[in-house]
Design a protein around this nucleic acid. Structure first.
Ligand SMILES: Nc1nc2c(ncn2[C@H]2C[C@H](O)[C@@H](COP(=O)(O)OP(=O)(O)OP(=O)(O)O)O2)c(=O)[nH]1
Ligand SMILES: [Mg+2]
Ligand SMILES: [Mg+2]
Ligand SMILES: [Zn+2]
Length: 581
DNA sequence: GCCGTTTTCGGCCCGACTGTTTTCAGTCG
């Protein structure tokens, strides 16, 4: 079993335990374990083989044993036993908005409902309203929840799609009189690669007019909650949006709360309790009756706890609290430290602009140097360059360099295909003519793990290949990642000095956060690149920076935060690294 | 089930909103 499967089993057990009415903290322990495995930057099989399972926070001896059973036998006795009591399909009811573990159990015990279809039938037949603690309104809400689920599903949305929608809604609400501050919060602010909903925050003395405007926005399909400080709506496109409105003097704790993550919040609140303070979105309440402490900024809130400011992108309870407590919080990469972009396309392949136009646009955005990296010959669909065309392009690059003067440098590169059989698309002597060589996969992404991994390793072990771009080839929500032994790849990258990309395109974000984090642990250098095909796409860089921050990447490990001379020196080392082995 | 400057048992974050409730449970953030 892989990480995803182990995590899914634990998540299902968590739901089954909650439905059965077990101690809720026991169920939560399974849920936390599921998340811990899901967020692991290593293959759980490798961690188990190394005997390090209990090193994972949230995994104790009991769960470690259960993981080992799953990995060796492919199933879990505890799960099978639980499934005899609580049908696993019952867990599906929890996907319906308004149905939690208690209702799921009630529906199972009183009406014998075990899945979504049966629930829909019972609700349509008016059977739910007759149950104790239920009524016509509850039944209607559940019907609505089922309809929403059928219409829109409950898939998470790629960050790149949610982001502009969130900004747009926020701009609309910001225009209402009385609004003093606005923010996108939740997983979008933390730059998770996908989001379940959009969480918006507004500071205003009087919330009512804002709530009114919010629930009557034209893109709102239905209103699922409308209170004095909080409202929730579903948009016509199926996206859920939560809005919280509070007075500005509580902005710091409010933004802290609504940015999350939940796990980060819980840790902060536990920390507060140890200091005799109760923390919520309104502020800190001392247990001894001293007056409430209000925080207008997040910095003040962290300061109240004796902590340095923690960037939203780090707030996942993945060690940032411990790091903050011990003064070991990483000084993660910031967008203004990025001085180059090492992956982009021009009209020579499938881009839109000329070499000079891309370079000029990059320079205007503050770049000191770039690499032009058009596709290679075999990628016909993207008009990959023949060797002849590649050599012609070198002349254009030389001209553009002349035109732009000494403060800017265009490196001549390629994004070379690693073919299905593992062969590289250009011969070594051609690669030797280039300043910067990217290798990447676009075809045959469904190969078995050994084969796909070997293709990447072939590229890594070529002395001319400087960087692996978007290593897994995934397109979030569209195309699954290639099945790779990432640990082996990252180790090889570390040994050879091959750079791994964090592709900033929000449909890719590849390496993703947890692999970027693992890359840092293994001493791999990364580059954060836009893979721009036109000038506008340079502005996607912040998604890559956010992802790199989530990977705890610091500027010394991000090569396009380096001056050009430092990068060129690094690239020269690679052939030596290979012969040294 | 996890975990420990309250160390191996007893805690485990805290509040908004809804509906059916005569006092609050359930769900969700
Ligand atoms: N203290 C506390 N805060 C919570 C809890 N649940 C949610 N929050 C806060 C932190 C979350 O980031 C924020 C928004 O909640 P969401 O359910 O929308 O989660 P989030 O945006 O993090 O992830 P998502 O992509 O929406 O699933 O509210 C909770 O149980 N306790
Ligand atoms: Mg959210
Ligand atoms: Mg939300
Ligand atoms: Zn590309």
């Amino acid at each position: 079993m892989n990480n995803r499967e182990v995590a899914h089993t634990f998540a299902t057990i968590a739901d089954m335990l909650a439905i059965r009415g077990d101690n809720i903290h026991r169920a939560l322990a399974y849920r936390r374990a599921a998340e811990a495995i899901q967020d692991l930057g290593q293959d759980v099989n490798q961690v188990a083989a190394a005997g390090k399972l209990t090193d994972i926070p949230g995994i104790g001896q009991t769960l470690a044993d259960k993981i080992k059973e799953m990995l060796t036998t492919g199933h879990l006795t505890f799960y099978d036993k639980l499934a005899q009591e609580i049908p696993p399909s019952l867990v599906g009811l929890l996907r319906v908005d308004g149905i939690g573990p208690k209702r799921a159990r009630q529906l199972y015990e009183t009406l014998g409902i075990t899945n979504l279809d049966e629930l829909a039938q019972a609700a349509q037949a008016g059977k739910l309203r007759e149950l104790p603690k239920m009524g016509a309104k509850s039944e209607a809400k559940i019907l609505q929840g089922i309809a929403d689920l059928e219409k829109h599903g409950d898939e998470r949305i790629p960050l790149g799609e949610a982001w502009p929608l969130a900004q747009e809604m926020l701009a609309t609400l910001a225009a209402i009189s009385g609004v003093t501050q606005t923010a996108v919060a939740g997983s979008a602010r933390r730059m998770r690669e996908t989001v379940h909903d959009i969480d918006l925050l507004i500071a205003a003395a009087d919330a009512a007019p804002i709530m009114d405007a919010f629930v009557s926005l034209p893109q709102v399909e239905s209103v699922s909650g409308r209170g004095p400080t909080k409202s929730s709506v579903t948009l016509v496109n199926g996206l859920q949006v939560d809005l919280r409105v509070l007075p500005a003097d509580r902005w710091g704790t409010l933004l802290l709360y609504f940015t999350g993550s939940k796990a980060h919040n819980v840790r902060l609140r536990e920390l507060a309790l140890k200091q005799g303070l109760s923390l919520n979105e309104y502020g800190f309440t001392p247990a001894d009756g001293r007056p409430e402490i209000l925080c207008a900024t997040e910095e003040e809130a962290y300061q109240t706890l004796g902590l340095p400011y923690i960037l939203p992108t780090l707030r996942e309870d993945r060690g940032e609290i411990e790091a903050a407590l011990s003064g070991a919080l990483p000084d993660v990469i910031r967008i203004e430290q990025i001085v180059s972009d090492l992956h982009m396309h021009t009209a020579w392949s499938d881009g839109k602009l000329s070499v000079l136009e891309m370079a000029t646009a990059a320079k205007a955005r503050g770049c000191q140097y770039i690499a032009i990296t058009d596709h290679s010959a075999s990628l016909g669909i993207a008009h990959g360059l023949s060797v002849e065309r590649l050599r012609q392009q070198a002349e254009k690059i030389r001209q553009a360099n002349e035109a732009l003067g000494p403060d800017f440098r265009i490196l001549h590169g390629t994004e070379m295909e690693i073919k299905a059989d593992g062969a590289l698309d250009y011969p070594d002597e051609v690669l030797a003519e280039l300043d910067f060589v990217i290798a990447s996969l676009h075809v045959s992404l469904k190969q078995p793990r050994e084969q796909a991994t070997q293709r990447i390793l072939n590229a890594i072990h070529n002395p001319h290949v400087d960087m692996i771009a978007h290593p897994t080839g995934r397109l979030i929500g569209e195309r699954p990642p290639a099945d790779l032994d990432m640990e082996t790849i990252l180790q090889a990258a570390a040994e050879t000095g091959t750079i791994m990309e964090v592709n900033a395109n929000p449909h890719r974000l590849d390496l993703k956060d947890i692999y970027a984090r693992r890359a840092m642990e293994l001493g791999v250098k990364i580059a954060i690149n836009t893979d721009a095909h036109n000038a506008d796409q340079f502005d996607l860089l912040h998604f890559g920076v956010g992802t790199a921050q989530r990977g705890w990447a610091t500027a010394v490990n991000v090569v396009n935060a380096w001056p050009l001379a430092q990068l060129l020196a690094w690239l020269q080392e690679k052939p030596k690294n290979l012969t040294r082995r």
